[in-house]
Simulated assay, not measured.
Amino acid sequence: MSQFTVSGRFKNRDGFAEFETTIDAENENVAREYAYTQLGSQHGLKRTEIELEEVSQ
């Protein structure tokens, strides 16, 4: 497994908040899906409220 750094922003009550997280995943697509799942679960967000800007290894 590789480590990917996923960054972007998500909608909150004050506008948008930026984030950056490191995720262990098999490939870039899995890292994107895990980021959506993790942020949605932690902050009660839908996928449409999350904007992924960059996924790098």
Rank of each mutant, 00 (worst) to 15 (best):
F10G: 06
E54R: 11
G8L: 08
Q57D: 00
Y36M: 10
V55Y: 03
S7G: 02
E26N: 09
N29I: 10
E20A: 01
K11G: 02
Y34S: 11
T48G: 15
G8W: 07
F4R: 01
T22P: 05
T48C: 13
E33Q: 13
N29W: 08
V30M: 03
S7K: 03
V30C: 02
F10I: 04
T5P: 11
T5F: 10
L39F: 15
E53Q: 05
I50P: 00
S56D: 01
Q3H: 10
Q57I: 06
Y34N: 08
T22M: 05
T5K: 03
E18P: 09
K46Y: 07
I50D: 05
S56W: 00
F10Y: 12
E33R: 09
E20I: 05
R13A: 14
E49G: 03
H43V: 00
D14P: 08
V55P: 13
R47E: 15
Y36A: 09
I50E: 06
A35S: 05
S2P: 04
S7E: 03
A25Q: 05
D24M: 06
Y36H: 01
A35K: 01
F16P: 07
Q3P: 06
G15R: 00
N29G: 12
H43N: 09
E18Q: 10
A17W: 12
E54D: 13
A17S: 15
T37W: 00
E28Q: 04
Q57A: 07
G15N: 04
